[in-house]
């Protein structure tokens, strides 16, 4: 997926100084000459390891390859054309964007809010800052299953409280109306701590003295946040946003574990759509264009946001 990010930037630079080579043994000299390539080897292998399947997948997408038939023929752009003509694809694209947008928005707002509250020196904040790391250690699938358990109509601990506020028959993931809502709740539950931790780290690395100046200058907390904290924090916020957008656009495990794309196709995101095509229905070659489309989408969004991030960084440093 991210071949462009891991392309090796290092350059071989360990050339022996002139004149010294003649004095050294030839074995030593040879070792020296190869050392830069040895150092690069892991990056090279990694790049190749990512590239080969990627290229292979692209090649496959121009065929009618299927997991249950052995004869393969070249069919050009047919897979791509049929994807663009299929209403399932457009539906899934919409779901994917909706999911990513809702999750990212909720998590960023919640995460920044909580981080601001925890960026304080009291016992509660200090305790919570340590505890926050624990949810991140749980695999999203497990987190989803835990959530499934607590909303389970017969044994879930959330059923009682829901009944008390008059929502006893709230169906969560079982109803097409609330399935997306449930997904966002679970995603936020799993990933908000990630946002909190990044934003907290950002907040705690901000210089202290401008805040003293702001204390004397006055202004409401909102005024100070808007004029001082936000611009200084913008690079961290944008990087966090990139991470969350990239991952939520591709999110598979939470949706798969909670709704499997259902009920019906109410939460059938591109990842799930492609997965379903590829495996239960053997249409691997049909699924690849969707994955490539998703990859291009993620790449584009990240590319734009990283551009913003660069500018925000300069602005925060006061350069631009």
């Amino acid at each position: 997926m991210s071949t462009t990010l891991s392309s090796p930037q290092t350059q071989p630079s360990a050339l022996p100084p002139e004149g010294s080579a003649s004095k050294e043994s030839s074995a030593h000299a040879r070792r020296r000459r190869f050392r830069p390539y040895l150092v690069l080897a892991p990056a090279l292998i990694l790049t190749i390891g990512i590239f080969i399947p990627f290229i292979a997948a692209i090649c496959l997408s121009f065929t009618d390859y299927s997991l249950n038939s052995s004869d393969v023929s070249f069919i050009g752009f047919d897979n791509y054309l049929s994807m663009l003509q299929s209403s399932d694809f457009w539906h899934s694209l919409g779901i994917t964007i909706e999911y990513a947008f809702l999750c990212t928005t909720v998590e960023m707002l919640l995460g920044v809010g909580v981080a601001l509250l925890l960026n304080d020196e009291n016992i509660v904040a200090r305790f919570l800052r340590i505890v926050l790391i624990f949810p991140l250690m749980i695999a999203p699938v497990i987190g989803t299953l835990i959530w499934k358990l607590i909303t389970n109509p017969s044994v879930g601990i959330l059923v009682g409280p829901m009944r008390m506020i008059g929502l006893g028959d709230f169906k969560w993931a079982a109803s097409p109306d609330s399935a997306m809502f449930s997904l966002v709740v679970v995603d936020a539950w799993v990933y908000t701590p990630f946002v909190i931790i990044l934003v907290l780290a950002g907040l705690r690395s901000l210089p202290k003295s401008p805040y003293e100046a702001a204390l004397i200058d006055g202004g409401s907390p909102w005024f100070v946040f808007k004029n001082l904290t936000l611009p200084m924090l913008a690079p961290v916020l944008l990087i966090t946003l990139v991470f969350r957008l990239m991952l939520s656009l591709q999110e598979f495990s939470i949706i798969f574990a909670l709704t499997e794309g259902g009920p019906g196709d109410a939460t059938m995101s591109l990842s799930l759509q492609a997965y379903n095509r590829a495996f239960p229905f053997y249409g691997l070659a049909e699924a690849i264009p969707m994955m490539l489309f998703l990859w291009a989408l993620v790449y584009l969004v990240s590319f734009i946001l990283i551009g913003f991030w660069r500018r925000a960084q300069q602005r925060a440093a006061g350069v631009a």
Partner: peptide, 28 residues
């Protein structure tokens, strides 16, 4: 501090890095 009517020129300047000089001055 904001109600004491004091102006403090900080030892380490403590200017607002993301703001232009104009907005640094206008902050208060």
């Amino acid at each position: 501090p904001k109600d004491r009517g004091v102006g403090l020129a900080f030892e380490n300047y403590a200017l607002y890095p993301p703001l232009k000089v104009r907005d640094n001055l206008a902050f208060n």
